[in-house]
Amino acid sequence: MSTPPRTRPEPVQVIKQRRDAALAKLVSTVPYIGFLGITFDRRGDELTAILPYDDKLVGNPVLPALHGGAIAAFLETTAIVELSWAIAWDEIEQGGGTKPVPTGKPKWPKTIDFTVDYLRSGLPRDAYARARVNRSGRRYASVHVEAWQDNRARLFAQATGHFLMPGT
């Protein structure tokens, strides 16, 4: 018995390049992501959003602490990019990733509602966030986001939002 011939797997750097290009394409089109300075670190399909500290993000200069609005925007952006990335991921990995980076403009989900819990004040340093798509249907999605600074287990904010899927 002989096993059927297998196609040779793609070199890892080709896969990484394709994934990183898809992510960069998604993120670079949004001016507000650039304004806040948010970047995304990708490990496989897992994204970590990074909000590098900047003076313009401060809301309480006495403490000092990050502005609640900047935190809300950071979490909402993380949720939207995670959801779009989850949609794009299936597309770029289809057929063993033989397709190039998805062409055309990214289609963004629309926020229906977004609720932020502020657990402790945001310190004047870098912040990180990860989102989890708890439910993604044909029309609606529910996404949870957690944000932390120095210690992954000590969240300084969390949020839940509902989104209308693109094309609905």
Binding site: V30, P31, Y32, A72, E76, F114
Partner: peptide, 26 residues
Amino acid sequence: ARFVGDPDAGIIHGGAVSALMDTCGG
């Protein structure tokens, strides 16, 4: 234009609207 979240339509990002309402509430 720096606060835009949907560049095709030129719509302001929800996060900027949040920041405005948060500040106004405060």
